[in-house]
């Protein structure tokens, strides 16, 4: 058995496999199917300072090899997380990380301060890339200036691991990655969903209530791989790769492209046991290729 341990920023993970925010609830939704403590890290549902009802139904459209979603960060707010969710998830023997989003800079700072007080929370994933909220979210992540500002301000108040989730809906994702690195991000995760659209031609109407939504699933994997490859060359901090990972081979491709860890998202909906299969599959790959540690395959792409 190969060594799957990996440090990403300030996080110590038992393996490089994490779950992508918004696809794994608070983890407990999956505990009938798998031992969730085997996963390297669980990024819980996008959380905002105050509770949000999210967008109107319909929020989802199936697309070729993927899906569009427009959930719109439905959550009960950071207070609810601290008082009702945190007590149950802090006992899970893995890294439980909060994905934090906001509409204003002040919202991000206030929520990050509250989360900084949780001693069993190893880190947050700063979401500056949600395409499904009218204000904030992705607006912060599509310019270097605003991305730098929100990371700088949150870094001031948040002492544990700060992973910053980047939007692919930009001209040059490497520039944004460098900007957040310069402000003290411990790692970057990418990609969030790609802005997309689906239409019902019979009704001549958009399928989603919000008209546009975020595309995920295998359809986005080649784009995600390319972006991870570019960002890994552009920054010194670790990169966490995601976008359409359905199996161990997909995860390994992201690591070869330069990712120190991966997140699995949409695949959880189709196979709630996929995370465990990916962990076991990476181990099998390392053994088969004679690697003693998962670290050996990070950026090991031969070009």
């Amino acid at each position: 058995m190969a060594n799957l341990n990996i440090n990403i920023g300030k996080l110590q993970l038992k393996n490089p496999v994490m779950t992508a925010s918004g696809t794994f609830g608070y983890g407990t939704e999956y505990s009938d199917f798998i031992d969730i403590s085997r996963i390297g890290g669980i990024i819980v549902k996008g959380t905002t300072l105050r509770s949000r009802q999210g967008n109107a139904y319909p929020r989802m459209a199936e697309t070729p090899s993927g899906m569009l979603n427009a959930v719109g960060l439905q959550n009960k707010g950071v207070d609810y997380f601290i008082n009702h969710i945190y007590p149950t998830v802090k006992v899970i023997d893995t890294n439980v990380i909060v994905n934090l989003s906001g509409s204003t800079l002040e919202d991000y700072i206030e929520a990050a301060e509250m989360l900084n007080d949780l001693d069993k929370l190893p880190g947050i994933e700063l979401n500056i890339s949600c395409p499904n909220v009218k204000e904030g979210g992705m607006a912060f992540g599509i310019s270097c200036l605003s991305a730098a500002e929100v990371v700088r301000e949150v870094r001031r108040v948040y002492k544990n691991d700060l992973m910053v989730k980047l939007s692919p809906n930009v001209t040059d994702i490497s520039e944004i990655a460098r900007a957040v690195e310069a402000e003290g991000a411990d790692s970057v995760s990418l990609i969030n969903t790609l802005l997309g659209m689906a239409i019902d031609s019979e009704k001549r109407k958009p399928i989603l209530s919000t008209i546009t939504g975020g595309l995920s699933g295998p359809a986005v994997k080649p784009i995600a791989l390319r972006m991870v490859w570019e960002v890994a060359k552009a920054v010194k901090i670790p990169v966490v790769g995601m976008g359409g990972i359905m199996n161990a081979a997909d995860a390994i491709e992201f690591m070869l492209a330069g990712a120190s860890g991966v997140q699995i998202g949409t695949a959880n909906f189709i196979d709630p046991t996929v995370t465990i299969k990916v962990i076991d599959g990476i181990d099998e790959y390392l053994n088969r290729h004679g690697y003693s540690s998962v670290i050996d395959i990070i950026g090991a792409l031969e070009v």
């Binding site: 609830g25 999210g54 139904y57 979603n69 959930v71």
Partner: peptide, 22 residues
């Protein structure tokens, strides 16, 4: 019968509006 991605409460796609919200 709303369209769903997961079926077990993880994706939050199949919501309906109720007296308790979505």
């Amino acid at each position: 019968e709303n369209t769903m991605a997961c079926g077990f409460g993880a994706c939050l796609c199949c919501v309906t509006d109720t007296t308790e919200g979505h």
